[in-house]
């Protein structure tokens, strides 16, 4: 009765697999409790815990400061959204200009190469200082002097340099045979870029682009050095006025509320991309 025997083997294997899974789950649970609980215990039993609790985790300070910090954070969000759009467009323009072969554009390519190197070479906070205090000092007519605008401009300069490199890597990753095919059907070079190369390149670089989004979302706090009342600045002022650091924690919480979902979303996209590539590899 081989059929019966086979069913038995199958049941035995399934039971063994269930046992293994149950044991794995149990081990994971115990080890998590030990590690996380141990860390918490270490913090809570430390000699300075009483002071830390009072200065960093004060519920009343949190409640009084939160509305102001949230208002400041709204400025961060607005600035982030505007700078992000500028960065996406500027970065793409730089990447496209750097991939053209037209001899007339040679000086522009050269300048853009220097631009991306320099902008990525200067620490962002330093650039925020230089733009934020340097441009108003020039006293040029019609140039903005609003620190939010200048801080945003400094961030756009740095980030467009990074993002242009991401785009450029994406454009390079599209196989030359795609260009051949686009030209062979009769498209000119500009059309081949627009309808064939660019759409494929952009799709591939969405995860790294989102990574730069996350980074920019946090770096918006750097404009605080120029004085605008954004979340970090507001929290800092409140913290130094009543010697309680809870407002800083409130600000941190707000940043996390935006960046963590974004990071999860990037992971999701990358996983999906990996699965798609694996499916491709299997069928190819």
């Amino acid at each position: 009765m081989s059929a019966v025997e086979q069913t038995d083997r199958r049941a035995v294997r399934a039971a063994a697999k269930r046992r293994r899974e149950r044991r794995g789950f149990l081990i994971a649970l115990i080890s998590s409790v030990v590690v996380i609980g141990g860390l918490a215990l270490l913090v809570v039993t430390s000699p300075g815990w009483g002071d830390v609790k009072a200065t960093f985790f004060s519920w009343s300070a949190f409640k009084t400061s939160f509305p102001d910090v949230l208002r400041g954070f709204w400025l961060d969000v607005k600035l982030f959204l505007i700078v992000e759009v500028v960065v996406l467009l500027l970065g793409l323009a730089i990447a496209l200009a750097r991939t053209t072969r037209s001899p007339a554009l040679f000086p522009i390519r050269l300048l853009l190469a220097v631009y991306t190197d320099v902008m990525r070479g200067i620490p962002t906070i330093l650039l925020v200082y230089l733009v934020g205090f340097g441009i108003p000092a020039l006293a040029l007519d019609g140039w903005p002097s609003d620190p939010v605008v200048l801080g945003g401009a400094a961030l756009a300069l740095t980030y467009s340099a990074y993002v242009s490199e991401v785009y450029r890597a994406g454009l390079d990753s599209v196989h030359p045979s795609q260009v051949s095919a686009a030209l062979a059907v009769g498209l000119d070079r500009v059309q081949a870029m627009r309808f064939v190369v660019l759409p494929q390149a952009v799709r591939r670089v969405i995860p790294p682009l989102l990574n730069d989004f996350i980074s920019l979302q946090k770096d918006v706090a750097l404009i605080s050095v120029l004085g605008p009342l954004e979340a970090f600045r507001v929290a800092q002022i409140q913290a130094s006025s009543d010697f309680n650091y809870t407002p800083l924690l409130a600000a941190a919480l707000l940043y996390i509320c935006v960046t963590v979902p974004l990071a999860r979303f990037v992971d999701h996209l990358q996983n999906r991309g990996r699965r798609a590539r694996q499916a491709e590899a299997v069928t190819a």
Binding site: S177, A184, V185, L187, F195, Q200
Partner: peptide, 26 residues
Amino acid sequence: GMVFQAFNLFPHLTVLENVTLAPRRA
């Protein structure tokens, strides 16, 4: 009209879009 050994279809476009791209744009 040219046809390549490795097909070189445009992977981001559907079959219909692959065929109509040149007539519409070029």
